[in-house]
Amino acid sequence: MKAFAYYSPTTPEDAVKALAGPGTVEALSGGTDLISRMKDYVTSPEKVVYLKDVKALAGVEEKLDGQVVIGAGTRLADLIADPLVRQRYQALRQATVEVGTPQIRNMATIGGNLLQRPRCWFFRNGFGLLGTKDGKSLVREGDNRYHAIFLTEGDALFVNPSSLAVPLIALNASATITGPGGARTIPVEQLYRVPRTNEERELTLAPGELLTHVTIPAAGKNGMYEVRQKQAHDWPLVMTSVNLKMNGDAVADCRVVLYGVAPIPWRSATAEAAIKGGPVTRDRATAAAKAAIEGAKPLSMNGYKLALVQTTVKRALLDAVGDRYWQEG
């Protein structure tokens, strides 16, 4: 890899100063994404800022108003073990359990998961974020079996790689970002955008900004379900996470968020509309699942994701209310 300057701050303030300095800069926490990109020369920063020594960025804390604050530097293994997460945010915990291997979960952090770069093999092989060559999309004309099925009119055809963003968005979590100009708080979904050129990034953090923590409000009934190609260490093909606010047996409000289908975590307004106003029965969950694929435009090799979306939406909704029929017998 290319030589770089190395900084190891111990406070968030010093981390922001290091990140805001001149030249190309990358933040390093667990390193499960950045190191491989640097070895492959996909990313060649002039400066690397190591964040693991910033102890203030780690930990899970309950506030007086009942919200739970999770530091961006919290290891995934610690998130899984935390009793607050276990008791209140089953979908987030289960999505975290499914990340990588025990070795990866002992290194990776929640901030690193949220801010990792796309796993698109065209991007990882040096063809830019949009996967183009000579002005043509290699993705659209090539092997696109793991790419997007929504928002496919443009050239950004990769899928957002963060599996933890999906339950956090379903839980209506917010992200706090600190930079040279101070702190700002945004919904987690606003961490992401659809780039229009290879020069734009898919993340909304400005140079010098540091994700410090995420805050999760009280949850309703939450559930998740994913489908992957193999049960061993792998990324999901499609995953759905849901959060339901109930009025008796009826769904008063909800969030249905999908992974693996768009260049941003995809919130399905059609599935939400289909499940609101009534109970979560198997028939109504099936109807919501069918609604979830409205507007999808698969590429040449990934039409199979339409069936996976329907399966994961139906099962995530039923998981939230405790009906795990697929485990029966």
Rank of each mutant, 00 (worst) to 15 (best):
M224H: 14
K230E: 08
K221P: 04
K221I: 05
P263I: 09
W235V: 12
H233P: 00
N243I: 03
A250N: 09
D249S: 07
M224N: 10
D249P: 06
A252I: 01
V227N: 02
M246V: 12
V242L: 05
V227P: 03
T240F: 04
L244V: 07
K245V: 03
K245W: 03
P263D: 13
S241G: 13
Q229C: 01
V227R: 13
N247V: 07
A250Y: 09
A262H: 10
H233R: 15
D234R: 07
A250H: 13
S241A: 14
A250L: 10
N222T: 11
R228S: 15
M246Q: 11
R228M: 14
G248N: 04
R255Y: 02
K245D: 09
T240M: 01
W235A: 15
V261N: 11
A232R: 07
K245E: 09
R228W: 03
M246H: 14
M239N: 14
A252S: 08
Q231V: 11
R255G: 00
G248W: 07
G260L: 10
V238I: 07
N243G: 10
N243R: 10
S241Q: 09
D253W: 05
V257P: 05
T240E: 04
Q229P: 00
D234Y: 10
M239G: 15
L258Q: 00
N222E: 08
Y259L: 11
V251E: 02
A252H: 01
V242G: 06
E226K: 14
V227D: 03
A250C: 11
L244P: 07
Q229G: 03
T240D: 01
D234G: 07
V256T: 00
V256C: 00
N243W: 05
Q229W: 06
R228K: 15
L244T: 09
E226R: 06
R228T: 12
M224V: 12
D253Y: 12
V261D: 04
H233L: 09
M246D: 15
H233I: 06
L244G: 11
D249Y: 03
V261S: 04
N222W: 02
R228P: 08
K245C: 05
V251R: 00
G260N: 08
D253I: 01
L237D: 15
P236W: 08
K221E: 15
D249L: 08
I264Y: 05
R255D: 02
A232D: 10
K221G: 09
V238N: 01
G260Q: 03
V251L: 00
G223I: 05
V251K: 00
M239Q: 15
G220P: 09
Q229K: 15
V261P: 06
G260I: 02
A250I: 07
K221D: 15
N247M: 11
D234T: 09
N222C: 11
K230F: 06
L237R: 03
V257M: 02
Q229Y: 06
L258K: 00
W235M: 14
Q231T: 13
W266Q: 06
W235R: 14
T240Y: 02
K245G: 02
W266H: 15
D234L: 05
